[in-house]
Design a protein around this nucleic acid. Structure first.
Length: 341
DNA sequence: AACCAGAACAACCGCCCTATG
DNA sequence: ACATAGGGCGGTTGTTCTGGT
């Protein structure tokens, strides 16, 4: 069984298309439209296989293709659609008019994927990475921000920690908390991109996954109406129930929104605080500490004073602060597993 | 100016699904 | 029901571009 490759004929040209070939192909399609790709090259006078012609047309020559850089909106949309659809580039492309699946796939692999990785998010699962390799990466980032990569704890110029330092701290802190939190369900149930996004934005509002898709913002999800989140499917790119036949995408999006609900419910049930989202001030950090300690009362975490330390980490820039980080990072570099924490 | 490394992009490969005879 | 052609899709590779040294 199986099908032989369509382009096994010898003598068929491969490689980059020339202007002349493009013109021939465009000319033929404009006159005759798209017919069977297999016979098209012969009729169009092209020494190419039909498949190659199709790809060239679909990915490059088609008149409705939008060229140029992806906008932030498009990028967000791709991320969110990918979290629902996975590597279904063609499906994702149907939500981005003028963009081809190939273009989106390339953009994902060369840009978005890296960004997510840098933010500590697994681009495959869209979940926060909690492995120690990632923590070590953050450690290095933090080390570089604090001083040199070889000796991160000395800062001879006495420079104030910059924005990157703060970001690295926040993210490292977040990762540590996830490891400490044995239930660990808050972040892992949802798309932590938002968490990281929140950190990068430095805002105290919380943008829920589907809110991004709708271009809306809401407050901390603990106060978001779950039914509202669930029922609102008004985003332009999501098929509206009843307006189209019930599609696979519809099911996927529904499941997606249910995941969001689960995320929100889990957050409400777990007292793992939304670090940056709601707690930019010292007093709030203290409140977080109280909540966290209350939640952890029965489990005697070795990090019972974590939030006191957090306050120092986040609010101080002096050497004392650095020493706190050194301790933490020493732990991450010497620990064999989260259990040993 | 030359070289190199990494990023970005275009194109190909091979598998899979569907339509058709 | 089966075989096969046609086309679609995702993964991968190869080429070109760009920025740094």
């Amino acid at each position: 069984m199986g099908r032989p490759p369509c382009c096994n004929e010898s003598g068929v040209k491969k490689g980059p298309w020339t202007l002349e070939e493009d013109e021939k192909l465009m000319d033929y399609i404009s006159k005759h439209g798209r017919r069977t790709w297999r016979t098209l090259p012969m009729h169009a006078g092209l020494n190419r296989c039909g498949k190659s012609c199709r790809l060239r047309w679909e990915n490059y020559l088609r008149p409705d293709i939008k060229r140029g850089k992806f906008t932030e909106e498009e990028e967000q949309l791709i991320i969110n659609l990918h979290s629902v659809l996975g590597n279904k580039w063609a499906k994702i492309a149907t939500h981005l008019p003028g963009r081809t699946d190939n273009e989106i796939k390339n953009y994902w692999n060369t840009n978005i994927r890296k960004k997510l990785l840098q933010m500590g998010i697994d681009p495959e699962t869209h979940k926060q990475r909690t492995d120690f390799n990632h923590l070590m990466n953050l450690s290095q980032l933090l080390g570089m921000s604090l001083g040199t990569s070889m000796s991160p704890w000395t800062n001879p110029l006495g420079l104030q920690a910059d924005v990157n330092t703060q970001l690295a701290k926040l993210q490292l802190l977040q990762n540590m908390l996830q490891l400490v939190n044995s239930t660990n369900s808050l972040v892992n149930m949802g798309n932590p991109y938002l968490f990281s996004n929140q950190i990068l934005n430095g805002t105290n509002t919380f943008q829920v996954e589907d809110s991004i898709m709708r271009g809306q913002e809401c407050v901390n999800p603990a106060s978001v109406s779950l039914s509202q989140t669930h029922s609102d499917s008004s985003h332009q790119n999501i098929p509206k129930p009843g307006t189209e036949k019930e599609s696979e995408t519809n099911h996927e999006v529904l499941g997606y929104n249910q995941n969001i609900n689960t995320l929100l419910q889990n957050e409400a049930e777990n007292l793992l605080p939304a670090l940056v989202a709601t707690c930019p001030k010292k007093t709030t950090l203290s409140q977080m500490d109280n909540n966290f300690n209350a939640a952890q009362k029965s489990t005697e975490s070795p990090f019972s004073t974590t939030f006191e330390a957090c306050e120092k980490f986040l609010l101080d820039d002096d050497e004392t602060n650095v020493s706190y980080w050194k301790e933490i990072l020493d732990m991450t570099s010497t620990s064999a597993s989260p259990v040993s924490w």
